[in-house]
Nucleic acid binder design. Sequence first.
DNA 1: AAACTACTTTACGTTTACGTAAACTTTATC
DNA 2: GATAAAGTTTACGTAAACGTAAAGTAGTTT
Lengths: 147, 147
Amino acid sequence: MDIKQTYSISELAKEFDVTTRSIRFYEDQELLKPTRRGQTRIFSSKDRVRLKLILRGKRMGFSLAETKELFDLWDETLSGNEKQLLKMLTILENKRAQLEQQKNDIAQAEMEMDTAEARCREALAELQKKKKQQAPVKEEARQTAEN
Amino acid sequence: MDIKQTYSISELAKEFDVTTRSIRFYEDQELLKPTRRGQTRIFSSKDRVRLKLILRGKRMGFSLAETKELFDLWDETLSGNEKQLLKMLTILENKRAQLEQQKNDIAQAEMEMDTAEARCREALAELQKKKKQQAPVKEEARQTAEN
DNA sequence: AAACTACTTTACGTTTACGTAAACTTTATC
DNA sequence: GATAAAGTTTACGTAAACGTAAAGTAGTTT
């Protein structure tokens, strides 16, 4: 078997490039629930998955509190009565909307980066031309409006 | 003309649904540079654009410091010598990589939400079936592994 | 002129997400 | 059995991004 069943704190820290401090903090905030052998923490593969989700959440701009909320909700959902299940479904819808917003934001950002890059390249080309002409040219007063 | 040239602090606050406190804070951190009439701030449409960028950045998980860095870099770039321009280009590349990462994260999240939703619907269907049968059925020990 | 509204500065408070140091235990190694 | 290596708790510190008074100014409406 390739997937281990349990992990030490430093194993996880190394794998995901976070400090042990962070991991302990996540436990303190109840996002992770390692068991103990003596006083040493033992992380399950479920914990590992959750750590991965925490970090992805952070990259996507989610707070730990938000992520914890989702975890808790999912746990409740698993032992779920109808109300919980329906609540989960609406929350999923909300999250989907959030993702849509983020995709829009990213698309916008990409477009702006395209035009920014184009401008850079133009400016560079300009500089190259001047260099070739070897003769210093008077610089135009350049009214560059922000996009 | 539809686009105003200048804006008051509360106009911008209302339009983008942020507090005036935040706007003043952004100025304090030098992300916005309104002029003054007396001691009242007057925001240009450039400021307006930047505010929009700041907020989008936040939604994408960027810190104010990161955003400021980009603003400053872009300003330098505009009056740019070759070195600045090249630096800008490499930074743009980095940002593109970041966006790729985010897109991956989002795609992953969407997939997981798909399976989560599917599970919810299955569980709901189960509940419905039981209800219809009207006869209470013994509940199976349910070993639901986390994805 | 009084009151209201929108704006201002100053400054201390708060939350989040850890960093960092100190002092201690447990386990492996020489 | 000393000592290092990896783990632990406790606790204070910090940066970021504002919130929240408090107290003042500037214009304008009644």
